[in-house]
Design a protein around this nucleic acid. Structure first.
Lengths: 341, 341
DNA sequence: ATGAAAGCGCTAACAA
DNA sequence: TTGTTAGCGCTTTCAT
């Protein structure tokens, strides 16, 4: 049995390959009758065109590359959901790559993309990433890169983000008005401006309430659970221990609960908690976790839609703009929600 | 500026394209000196070979397709993690597709794979899937399909699964020995044998403890949250209401907590719960959730490793076997853990 | 050890 | 409306 290609159809129907090709792609040059015949035979033989031959010829892969730090994370998995929904609708395929928060991985992935494997890239940077130099190669090769969530200001492209500064500000203010005198900021070591923006929002709230900020207010975690656990444990046993925490990373909120359980610290009486988090289970934690819930699905779908738009329009220049989709503070029982008089 | 291809290198170095090609792929036919020159120039010019040209010629895409029902789910995202780790190690790329539990989506995706877009497939079937007829096309085109978690027995291939029957049996027994007289099974409507196996395990435990089984013991959910909520609400208000639930689907455990909260049902006093779940937050729910925790990462990585092995060996026939990686029952406070005397 | 040439399956000028 | 032809960029015999 021969390989089933466009040639097979051509021979069978006594038509040229180009006619078949055009018919399959519903070209206006081809008569309705011919199209029908071609489609019928294709259907009958169960023909499907080789996408790589097509990609090679058209220099378009109809594929987008998604690069994220991790996937076991409500935010990122919801973002993937959003990305997939528009990819599917627009006929794009989604290649997924995880950096595991490692810059070298990120570099290698983006380097690979210079081969033309993907038409465009959706990137959320690793926590180790400090600048955008490793992106310039891609930009130079005209592969559009759109950032989401963890972005870099110095790259001229669309960045789809949430209002990190305001969210952190609002969340911190919520802690303070709920009685916290010494709110801390729990985060990861990173130069990501998503982190610095949140810190700035946090600081602004402190300032407004005349609470002195010191660097020790910021608890910097790594990717090592044991290390983080000991770090926080120590912090919660220190003399100047926090009475409130704004947690900047979803996965770290579990850490806080663990430490509180082990030290018998009562939430929210001894410690109030707000976390950036998209956990479905936030309402059912003990106690229910007050969250800054990010519009993860929308961030993903808007980023993907913007990318596809850039890909489809020829000569479309990606504007250098921030698309900001706000987060929402959902108050639950891990904070006291009392109003200072 | 010309396009940067293998030809560019050839011209620059006064060598033939075939020499360049071989040198880049470290062929033994090429002298060390030449290899060095080629590699150096490639590096200098920042050349990267077009993967689609290569795929077309070699009839290999170095790409695997992963088809899963959803991604916002600890089990599946952990499985992706496992898949990605071996893909990366073996130099494979991962295309992700979501069926959203819809059979037509699943069919369309698998149909597309007949084009040769992927070298092999990792599939976890949608809940609507009732048989494997839609897979036969792929098999016929020699695209290996390996199942994980949600599998079909009638396909002759490797299936990487957990011990659903035993796990459900053990979990149900745990409910009963903890005092449940009327444990129910919460699940989705589906012909998936993952579900029937769990039901069988559940039934066996009932039987062993002389608890009569009736069909009303099985609560069948859909993908509609509202519907499920009302269903469970009603159930929990009925005269023969359950005093224990084995929840077969991670995402439904939140539903139970919600209903209990709204009806003021105390867990575990009024209702004990065990859920198949890989939630990181299980320990911190109120109360902590007793789980059947599945080896999701391992299931993903073993499935991927098996697929890659099949892809790399020529004439390798995929055996028709089940690879079973056991789950573990983690007892927490949503069950009473008392021992019947 | 290197090169010439054919061709993977498709698309797009251009011709007819 | 249909056909001819020349590639897309790479790999692979088969010569040399």
């Amino acid at each position: 049995m021969d390989k089933l290609t466009i040639k097979t159809l051509a021979k069978e129907l006594q038509l040229s390959v180009s006619t078949i090709s055009k018919a399959l792609r519903d070209s206006h040059e081809i008569s309705a009758a011919t199209k029908r015949k071609v489609l019928a035979l294709a259907e009958q033989l169960n023909y499907s065109p080789n996408p790589y031959a097509s990609s090679l010829r058209k220099r378009k892969s109809k594929t987008i590359g998604v690069v994220i730090p991790e996937v076991v994370n409500s935010f990122f998995s919801q973002a993937i959901n959003g990305i997939e929904s528009v990819a599917k609708e627009k006929g794009y395929h989604v290649l997924i790559y995880l950096t595991h928060e490692n810059l070298d991985n990120e570099k290698a992935i983006l380097k690979d993309f210079e081969s033309g494997r993907v038409d465009g890239v959706l990137l959320s940077a690793s926590r180790e990433t400090i600048n955008s130099t490793h992106i310039s190669g891609l930009i130079k090769k005209d592969v559009p890169v759109i950032f989401f969530d963890r972005v870099f200001d110095d790259v001229e492209t669309v960045k789809v983000i949430t209002n990190d500064f305001e969210s952190a500000y609002t969340a911190t203010k919520h802690l303070i008005t709920s009685g916290c005198k010494n709110p801390h900021f729990l985060s990861i070591i990173s130069n990501l401006n998503i982190i610095s923006n949140r810190i700035d929002g946090y600081k602004k709230a402190l300032q407004e309430h005349h609470i002195k900020f010191s660097n020790s207010n910021i608890i910097n975690c790594t990717t090592n659970w044991e290390h983080n656990y000991k770090l926080l444990l120590k912090k919660m046993q220190s003399s100047k221990k926090p009475d409130g925490i704004l947690c900047s990373i979803e996965n770290l909120s579990v850490l806080i609960y663990q430490v509180c359980e082990d030290l018998n610290i009562k939430i929210p009486d001894d410690l109030q908690i707000v976390s950036f988090s998209n956990l479905d289970t936030a309402s059912f934690l003990n106690p229910p976790l007050t969250t800054v819930t990010q519009p993860a699905y929308e961030i993903g779908s808007v980023a993907a839609a913007t990318l596809v738009k850039a890909l489809e329009k020829k000569n479309f220049i990606i504007p250098n703009e921030n698309i900001v989709i706000p987060s929402v503070l959902i108050k639950r029982k891990s904070t006291k929600n009392k109003i200072l008089s």
